[in-house]
């Protein structure tokens, strides 16, 4: 994969998309072969390196989102943002606005619908520096209009950082111009 390009991982459910993302994000190392990041084998990363990596190099939207239900939407985002102080509160709120969830910012995550939570998780993933953005079925519960808004926001951020984008999807390609499509 190259910097500044977008990739689509397309496969039916249960075929290993999330496992692939877990390998890339360092949550699972039960794979054969090797994954190199900037020519360095990720298997050799120490725990501290991984932590630094997850703060500055890789960002992810999990399929399961993993928001903290007891925190509000904005708290969930700030929790991530405060690690690097990457975005201002105003910026965060404007992103939420663009995805039409700004009015839910102070509601607890557990009270939001899954589609709303997905959008909050997307904004959270953008609140850190990254060279690689992993999105695991990010739009599964979002309507087409909001998907357009979200892809637009994501592509802006990815372009601004000249980062690599990897999206996992069951089939939909969300009108993004991919450099390559991987079929699992």
């Amino acid at each position: 994969m190259e910097a500044g390009k977008s990739y689509l991982v397309k496969a039916a459910s249960g075929s290993g998309k999330s496992s692939f993302f877990n390998f890339l994000y360092g949550l699972n190392n039960k794979f054969t072969g090797s994954i190199l990041f900037d020519e360095k084998d990720i298997a050799s990363f120490s725990e501290t390196e991984w932590t630094q990596f997850r703060r500055h190099k890789i960002s992810i939207v999990f399929q399961g989102l993993r928001l903290f239900p007891e925190l509000t939407a904005i708290e969930n985002i700030q929790l991530k943002n405060q690690l690097t102080n990457h975005k201002t509160e105003a910026e965060i709120r404007s992103y939420l606005e663009r995805l039409d969830v700004a009015h839910l910012a102070d509601k607890k995550a557990e009270t939001l619908s899954y589609g709303q939570q997905q959008r909050v998780a997307i904004v959270r993933a953008l609140c850190q520096p990254f060279e690689l953005l992993l999105l695991d079925e990010p739009f599964s519960h979002i309507d087409d209009v909001q998907i357009d808004n979200a892809t637009q926001l994501i592509l802006e951020e990815v372009t601004a950082r000249n980062a690599t984008l990897v999206i996992a999807s069951l089939g939909n390609s969300y009108n993004i111009d991919y450099s390559k499509t991987l079929l699992l």
């Binding site: 994000y25 949550l27 725990e47 501290t48 932590t51 997850r54 703060r55 993993r66 903290f68 929790l79 991530k80 690690l83 850190q128």
Partner: peptide, 13 residues
């Protein structure tokens, strides 16, 4: 659950 999530959000142990 919370500890795991925090850790892979980028919080160190």
């Amino acid at each position: 659950q919370t500890i795991c999530q925090l850790h892979f959000l980028g919080f160190s142990r």
